[in-house]
Amino acid sequence: MTALIPAVAFQELFSRVFVFERYGELLDLLSTSIWAGAVLGLIGGFAGTFVMMRDHSFAVHGIAEMSFAGAALFLLVGYDVVTGSLVGSIVAALLIGALGVRRSESNSVIGALMPFGLGLGILFLSLYQGRSANKFSLLTGQIVSVDASQLTEMILGAVIVIAVLLAVWRPLTFASLDPEVARAKGVPMGLLSMIFMVVLGIAVALSVQVVGALLVLSLLVTPSAAAQQITASPLKVLIFSVIFAEISIVGGIMLALAGTLPISPYVTSISFAIYLVCRVIGRYKRRHSASGRALPAV
């Protein structure tokens, strides 16, 4: 009898994580969320490539905390949460870009900004008297919160993010990979940093409404970090980053449709699994490269 208790508990847990009843109906009903996830995969892949190239993983977290604070404030006063998230992200991006041009300075600015943003967000949510589900979704994401108008906003945001990154691709890559030489060559480091931080702020704000403020790193950092494990080419890192981000977010949404949990655990689990696989592949490649064996190029 005692041996059956863990089995029953596991079965109950599995039934919460994966519930495939009416899956086809839900798939059709939430198709907008799936398309939104695909758009976010593009944003995450493009922005994440430069996040890793510029070693700005910490900045993503800092902007996400302020995005959370902005969304919580707008929720409290009864305005659009997505707009609040965007305002918070842009404010954080501008502060980081203006106060922390150099990497050492940006880390200290972000370190001061993160607890401030998180504290403000918790304060605003504590004052909010509405549904607790609205509070929870700001932190962990909400699959059913995306409607047609928000999808249009995401597409517009993706176009802006990708267009700007493509426009500054060469100087931003140069400034990211070799900042000292780029500065000596007259590359406008401060302007590029500000442009990228604003673009990153938009990407974070768009991502927060689906995956949540706490776990936005799984979309804007982990896919690109995984891609860097298997290739050193910036272009190939971009391609793999987009692929990994799409698999993580769209796959996470598809699994979340079959369960009762928030979307974040599914997205983060897929994203981390991809990272682990890429780590193994990267280690295998480096080991055989060091031993002088030729491996197929990736």
Results as ranks from 00 to 15, higher is better:
Gln142Asp: 15
Thr2Lys: 14
Val77Arg: 00
Gly212Leu: 03
Ser176Leu: 00
Ile5Leu: 13
Met197Asn: 05
Ser248Asp: 03
Leu118Asn: 02
Ser264Glu: 04
Ile160Gly: 06
Thr173Leu: 14
Leu113Met: 11
Ser126Thr: 14
Ile195Met: 14
Leu29Glu: 10
Glu12Ser: 10
Gln150Ala: 09
Ile110Asn: 03
Gly62Ile: 02
Val60Ile: 12
Thr49Ser: 10
Phe46Thr: 02
Leu172Ser: 06
Val51His: 00
Ser137Ala: 15
Ile96Tyr: 00
Gly259Phe: 06
Tyr23Leu: 09
Arg170Met: 11
Ala232Glu: 14
Gln229Ile: 05
Val267Arg: 01
Phe50Lys: 09
Ser126His: 13
Leu13Glu: 10
Ala245Cys: 10
Arg102Phe: 09
Gln142Val: 03
Val77Pro: 01
Gln129Val: 12
Leu215Asp: 02
Leu73Phe: 12
Gly282Val: 12
Ala36Met: 05
Leu156Ile: 15
Ile253Gln: 07
Phe244Asn: 02
Met189Trp: 09
Ser264Val: 04
Ile143Trp: 05
Leu200Glu: 02
Ser89Gln: 03
Ala175Thr: 08
Pro234Met: 07
Ser67Tyr: 05
Ser218Glu: 12
Ile155His: 07
Tyr23Ser: 09
Ala273Asp: 07
Ala294Asp: 14
Leu219Cys: 02
Arg131Pro: 10
Ile96Asp: 01
Ala290Leu: 15
Phe124Gly: 01
Gly88Ala: 11
Pro188Thr: 08
Ile43Tyr: 00
Leu120Glu: 05
Arg283Cys: 09
Val187Asn: 08
Arg54Glu: 04
Gly41Asn: 00
Arg170Cys: 07
Val51Arg: 00
Arg287Thr: 14
Arg293Thr: 12
Ala163Cys: 14
Ser89Ile: 04
Leu191Val: 15
Ala36His: 01
Ala184Glu: 13
Arg170Tyr: 13
Arg54Lys: 14
Leu166Tyr: 07
Gly48Val: 04
Thr268Ser: 11
Leu99Val: 07
Val144Met: 11
Arg102His: 13
Phe58Ile: 06
Ser176Pro: 03
Thr140Gln: 09
Phe272Ala: 15
Pro115Lys: 07
Leu192Cys: 09
Gly100Met: 02
Leu138Ala: 03
Leu219Phe: 07
Ile160Phe: 13
Val60Ser: 00
Ile230Thr: 09
Asp80Ile: 08
Ala225Asn: 01
Phe136Met: 13
Val91Leu: 13
Ser85Met: 08
